[in-house]
Design a protein around this nucleic acid. Structure first.
Length: 356
DNA sequence: GTGCATGATTGGAT
DNA sequence: ATCCAATCATGCAC
């Protein structure tokens, strides 16, 4: 049995209630009072209407945030809560009725027995109290399970994951554009996050989530994202007109160049070879190089002009390791790209991308 | 229905 | 505090 989110959630909350009861540290009245209070607060046991809607409104407000479509969910919540409420009340009534019936039944029995043997009023009192205790424990169970039901209902409405909505296409494009144009270091600053959030009309933490997910998923399966990368790369290239002329220049030595353009983010595993292979397709090259120009071409040209050729290891070490995902994986090892790009900072406007 | 995509959450590492 | 990695729960295409 794997515990679901709702189970863990309500079990955590419920432990406050149930642990004490199990320990019997305090009179059961206290536990009963807690249950009663909770049911009252949730609007289950209180007056017909009032507390319930307040609790529902609070839950919906907490869950909905800025959402405007929570009215249906709100009514859904209310409907379910009133369902629970109804069940609770009918059951409670049933128990009370049964208790009364059973008490009178026992009283009648005792009365009958009193003809044959003497029965003290104390004995009657004892019997009645036993019956009442039994029924009140049943009642407590009912209250507890009702609390559980309300907890589950509430946690369902409070859990954001249940109302996950995909971001709209425009937002995704903006985020992807930023991601792929900052592929060498896809860690937006706080300000950048804020700006992206504003542009996409999402929250900053959603931006953070998105980048966290994107980085990890990109790294896990670079090959899968290659096409997407190329697409956004081409788009960025189209906007970066001033560097497009250099693209062809850097384009001529095919292998190192394609590796270089891809190298900044592909140095993780066997995926590298896959992506490099795909990049060697002539249709990709220009776009890919053009896309990365803002952050890469200057570095490339610098290295190329310095080495004068392609000493494989040298080129690789100079191009890949500082900026890209290194052998250990992750961009994390290059947290300050400025130190990496600083050698090339003089000739080119390497940081033009960050100003985006 | 099933499988993949995706946003959110959680726990651990730094 | 931020990030990564794993995972959850939902959305969506088939």
């Amino acid at each position: 049995m794997t515990t679901t989110w709702s189970e863990t959630l309500y079990v955590r909350k419920l432990s406050i209630l149930s642990i004490r009861g199990a320990q019997e540290e305090e009179p059961p009245d206290a536990q009963l009072m807690r249950l009663d209070n909770m049911l009252l607060a949730e609007g289950v046991s209180g007056p017909e209407k009032g507390g319930g809607s307040a609790a529902a409104a609070a839950a919906a407000a907490a869950a909905g945030g800025a959402g405007s479509d929570n009215s249906t969910e709100h009514s859904d919540y209310r409907a379910k809560l009133s369902q629970i409420r109804q069940i609770y009340h009918t059951e409670l009534e049933k128990y009370e009725q049964a208790c009364n019936e059973f008490t009178t039944h026992v009283m009648n029995l005792l009365r009958e027995q009193s003809r044959t043997r003497p029965i003290s009023p104390k004995e009657i009192e004892r019997m009645v109290s036993i019956i009442h205790r039994k029924f009140s424990s049943i009642q407590m169970q009912l209250k507890q399970s009702t609390c559980e039901a309300v907890m589950i209902l509430r946690s369902r409405f409070l859990d954001a994951r249940r109302k996950r909505r995909n971001f709209n296409k425009q937002a995704t494009e903006i985020l992807n554009e930023y991601f792929y144009s900052h592929l060498s270091n896809p860690y937006p600053s706080e300000e950048a996050k804020e700006e992206l959030a504003k542009k996409c009309s999402i929250t900053v933490s959603q931006v953070s989530n998105w980048f966290g997910n994107k980085r990890i998923r990109y790294k896990k399966n670079i090959g899968k994202f290659q096409e997407e990368a190329n697409m956004y790369a081409a788009r960025t290239a189209a906007t970066a007109t001033n560097v497009s002329t250099h693209g062809s220049q850097a384009n001529s030595p095919s292998t190192p160049n394609s590796a270089g353009s891809a190298g900044s983010f592909n140095m993780n595993s066997g995926d590298l070879f896959m992506s490099v292979q795909s990049l060697n397709g002539d249709s990709y090259q220009g776009a890919q190089v053009g896309a990365n120009v803002q952050s890469q071409v200057d570095t490339l040209r610098h290295v190329i002009s310095q080495t004068g050729g392609y000493s494989e290891s040298l080129a690789a070490s100079q191009i890949y390791s500082p900026q890209g995902i290194n052998a250990n994986g992750g961009w994390q090892d290059a947290p300050t790209p400025s130190s990496v790009t600083s050698p090339t900072e003089g000739p080119g406007s390497v940081h033009s991308d960050t100003s985006n």
